[in-house]
């Protein structure tokens, strides 16, 4: 990784139409990125379209001119070395980066053709439609049941409050059904079905991770952003989560960050490779990216030569 930074001077911008042949700066050869390597053509609609996205954290240029279209009802994998901006990119898709005070975001992101970086966008509504599972598990200090039911309750879809109970209008049954369904989908139900009223902070790291996936499913988003959802899971739970993602892709649009190449190859329809410095180097059909990448650096990364 450090090797790579030394051979990619900051002055060199991504997306140049310049001659793709090696340029010499410090006496070493540097490969440039080319537009057609990230020009992924697919059939069907683009669920989300990102154009010229730049993100700065203070003076730190974390994402450089990223453009990519994410097709509907499919799984898109984001891979790349640590610190290359995958999480940053993901957080731009539901504007969670707005919450980082030092972040400055330029460019355009469209959801179903509607610009989300413009005045008057209802962030609450946006995040209902574009859900997110964070890199580190962050359950609420509440019971497992409350964690899952939290979103729907706050959206007014479930009412189990005191007044509803008094009026005999409580949605407790619906809630319990929802809790069970979400937990089953996230492969957690068997482990916690008898302790739904225990505090979620008492779960193991991997269980918390699956709880967060279940919580994200509970609000039924259209796009699901997952930041390394299987990083703390054993092979069995990982397989279950991969099955879940496979099922989800029939109805939902899933974008997943992973450090596991095999996982990306197994579950995704298309793969985007970010490399250090925050550039999107290659984006295309998963098979093509893994078997026949255009970029040498991507090939090196995938075959484990660096990163």
């Amino acid at each position: 990784m450090s090797e790579n930074t030394t051979t990619t001077p900051q002055t060199q911008t991504a997306q140049t139409d310049a001659d793709p042949s090696p340029t010499t700066t410090t006496g070493e050869t540097v490969e440039q990125t080319r537009d057609e390597w990230t020009d992924y053509e697919f059939r069907g609609e683009a669920k989300m379209a990102v154009e010229d996205l730049d993100v700065h954290y203070g003076d730190d240029h974390a994402l450089k001119g990223v453009s990519m279209e994410i097709p509907e009802e499919s799984v898109t994998a984001l891979i790349g070395p640590s610190g290359c901006g995958k999480s940053t990119y993901l957080r731009c898709l539901n504007r969670m980066n707005d919450r980082v005070s030092s972040a400055r975001i330029d460019g355009s992101v469209k959801l179903d053709g509607r610009e989300i970086y413009q005045d008057g966008v209802n962030l609450v509504e946006l995040r209902k439609r574009v859900g997110m599972v964070f890199q580190s598990p962050n359950p609420f200090p509440k019971t497992i049941r409350e964690n899952i039911a939290y979103g729907p309750k706050k959206h007014g879809d479930l009412d189990t409050g005191l007044l509803a109970r008094l009026l005999n209008r409580s949605d407790a049954d619906e809630r319990d059904d929802l809790v069970e369904r979400c937990l089953r989908d996230a492969a957690l139900w068997d482990e916690v079905s008898d302790r739904l009223d225990d505090n979620a902070l008492g779960l193991s790291g991997g269980q918390q991770q699956r709880l967060c996936i279940a919580r994200c499913l509970s609000v039924d988003p259209e796009v699901i952003l997952m930041d390394e959802p299987a990083s703390a899971l054993d092979p069995i739970a990982t397989a279950k989560i991969e099955d879940l993602i496979d099922d989800l892709s029939e109805e939902y649009t899933v974008v997943i960050v992973t450090h596991n190449m095999q996982q990306a190859a197994r579950i995704s329809d298309q793969t985007a490779v970010f490399l250090t410095g925050g550039e999107l180097v290659e984006y295309g059909d998963t098979d093509q990216v893994f078997e026949n990448p255009h970029s040498e650096r991507v090939e090196d990364y995938i075959t484990g030569k660096f990163g």
């Binding site: 919450r99 609450v124 939290y150």
Partner: peptide
């Protein structure tokens, strides 16, 4: 963050 990401 978790709450905001749920659209709350």
């Amino acid at each position: 963050d978790a709450s905001a990401a749920l659209g709350v």
